[in-house]
Amino acid sequence: MAALLEVRDLTIEFTTKAGIVHAVEGASFDVERGEALGLAGESGCGKTTTALALMRLLPYNGRIVRGSISFAGRSLVPLEEASMRAIRWKEMSIVFQGAMNSLNPVQRVGRQIAEPIILHEDADSDVALKRAGDLLELVGISRNRLNDYPHEFSGGMRQRVMIAMALACDPKLVIADEPVTALDVMIQAQILDLLERLRRELDLAMILISHDLSVLADTCEQVTIMYAGKTMESGKTMDLFTDPKHPYTQGLVGAFPDIRGPRNMPEAIPGDVPSLISPPSGCVFHPRCKFAFDRCSNAEPELSELAPGRRAACFLYPEVTEVPGRSMPIATR
């Protein structure tokens, strides 16, 4: 049986004054029913863009140039807007980073949670508000607070409201984009526990996006590592963490102190994420990679299978092939 979500060769570009931004290139991943996938990488490497593209919510200057998104047997890229609207929130919902700004500041939270229920299930507002109250209790907030405004909640509470809202229509897939980033550590743990509990109870599929690998470690079965719009490595979470193949993944894993292991200072990856307008030739990571050799700047490694369920895009491994037709740097447009 096909996976719930199958993304193949997803490529997204933004048109800006400065030039075309190659935000995501050739992203491919699957999410099975009831499974959690983690998307990781530094800021600005295309994680959020990927999430928005899945719901077809790219800003006006962004577009999907290539690739396919298949969700519950339907192909989303060519789907017309009206049918896409019927899928949004009903089958696939999203929790954004920083719930302060993700909730409408001048609308009561009850109404905001009830809104998609009224829209998608033709419920009248009393029924929808009752459901909204149930949902608030599900995430550990008293239903008395239905009539409160977002600013009357703390950061962690707002994120809970956001999660309650995401569950309003019993979606098959919830995308959580940096759901705990702006929160302090204690609240982070609470929210992650809540997500994990709900996922098991409601048998949800989930995409968890974070720049913080430790956030993904306990929640996700699969992890995909992205860098500068490209997929660097993917595989089972445990494998990836215990034996990172790609130098970038190694850097990311190394960047976190291991509280159980010996006390080594975390090692930072030198340099910054490159410009997505004129990305480096060959492997996008080679300017920052301490193992880089000639081939890395001339040819682009293709995400290749190293072991069953384990893929990486790095020439350090003999199995990795070159992306055909792109052995020379793409002319800058």
């Binding site: 899928i87 929130w89 919902s93 954004f96 920083g98 700004n101 998609p116 829209l119």
Partner: peptide
């Protein structure tokens, strides 16, 4: 603002997003 993206993600039509949010 992010809440506008939230509203669109809810499946509201552009007109509904404009009027309600």
């Amino acid at each position: 603002e992010d809440f506008v993206t939230t509203a669109r993600a809810k499946g509201l039509s552009p007109r509904q997003v404009l009027r309600r949010h």
